[in-house]
């Protein structure tokens, strides 16, 4: 017997690829260190998750909602440091597979 799939309506969830290989099933997902909302949610100033509320990766491997981090960096108290480890914040180039430029560059083209 041969099974031919004509059409498959499937359901999937999207996740941010935070680099941490998190294939361990039903993990709750990481939360943004600033707003404590999961990455797949959105930062407090956004209403829509995903490309409209992207993440930002630091050289220090810490990940935040972009909006959260930019607001943090914008405050005088931040000293341009990563809020987690107090090292100077340097936005990392995403080095996923094909080395696409930064996340910020990919997002606008999609939306």
């Amino acid at each position: 017997m041969k099974v031919i799939i004509k059409r498959w309506h499937a359901v999937a969830q999207w996740r941010w690829d935070t680099g941490v290989s998190s294939d361990d099933g039903d993990e709750e997902g990481d939360v943004c260190g600033i707003c404590r909302v999961p990455f797949e949610g959105c930062c407090p100033s956004c209403k829509v998750p995903g490309d409209d509320c992207p993440l930002i990766w630091g050289e220090c491997t810490h990940v935040f909602h972009m909006h959260c981090l930019l607001r943090w960096i914008g405050t005088a108290a931040s000293n341009q440091q990563c809020p987690m480890d107090r090292r100077p914040w340097v936005t990392a180039e995403r080095k996923v597979k094909n080395l696409v430029p930064g996340a910020g560059a990919a997002a606008p083209s999609a939306s």
Binding site: W8, A12, D17, V96
Partner: peptide, 16 residues
């Protein structure tokens, strides 16, 4: 590139 999919395989329908 910065996203990945996680399937919910028990949902949906298949026409075969």
């Amino acid at each position: 590139p910065d996203k990945k999919l996680r399937w919910l395989p028990h949902m949906g329908t298949v026409h075969l």
